[in-house]
Nucleic acid binder design. Structure first.
Length: 195
DNA sequence: CGGCAGATACGCT
DNA sequence: GCGTATCTGCCGT
């Protein structure tokens, strides 16, 4: 597949509009001399107007990257043991990002399985922290530009609208009614199928 | 497959 | 102190 720069201008818009457009995009990671590839199948949008977002209460040391340049990775640590990663979107100074909640592995399943404690199939990457573990993403990659190795985003053509399911987000206690979760219809790697 | 409890450490009040 | 954009194991259906 041809190499492809992240079209940063494409990421300059509302998180809720960009998020569904990232479905089907490819994430390519080089790790331990191998190439891992996966297709994005589930995302959620967060921005500073929304109570569920880390950026809601303004910029802090932790959320600084979310307020930075689009096309970079915002990684956070949660529940004392998990990492989750987002693609920063919107204008610099505006805190917004798209959480990668699930991907479908395309290559490098063996390495992912090893990092996932021997698990296989959908259990490799059907959740945001599972994906980070499978892809070896931690705080060390916070702020990384997705135009460069060792982790690149390769945008793909938009999916047909009837293949995209829109629902409320998962695991939050505020902003539960906001329909900013998007996933690929009938894809086995989606974390939870509801509605 | 669904529901629930426990793990575990950091950011922020 | 308290809550957390989660996962896992264990239980029951």
């Amino acid at each position: 597949m041809a190499s492809q720069k992240v079209d940063v201008s494409f990421l300059h818009g509302r998180a809720s509009e960009i998020a569904p457009r990232l479905l089907g995009g490819i994430l390519e990671r080089t790790l331990d001399g191998k190439v891992l590839r996966a297709r994005i199948v589930e995302v959620e949008a967060y921005d500073q107007t929304d109570v569920a977002s880390h950026s809601y209460k303004g910029e802090t040391p932790r959320t600084k990257i979310m307020f930075g340049d689009a096309g970079h990775l915002y990684v956070y640590f949660t529940y004392g043991m998990h990492y989750c990663c987002n693609i920063v979107v919107g204008e610099k100074g505006y805190g917004a990002a798209v959480l990668i909640r699930a991907v479908e592995p395309l290559n490098g399943d063996e390495g992912m399985s090893r990092r996932r404690g021997g698990r296989s199939g959908r259990d490799l990457t059907n959740g945001p922290a599972k994906f980070c573990q499978a892809f070896g993403i931690s705080l060390a990659m916070n702020g990384h530009s997705l135009s460069e190795p060792p982790l690149r985003l390769l945008l793909q053509p938009a999916l047909p609208t009837d293949q995209v399911i829109t629902t409320t987000r998962i695991g939050i206690s505020h902003g539960k009614d906001v329909p900013w979760r998007f996933y690929v219809k009938d894809n086995g790697y989606v974390s939870k199928r509801i509605e």
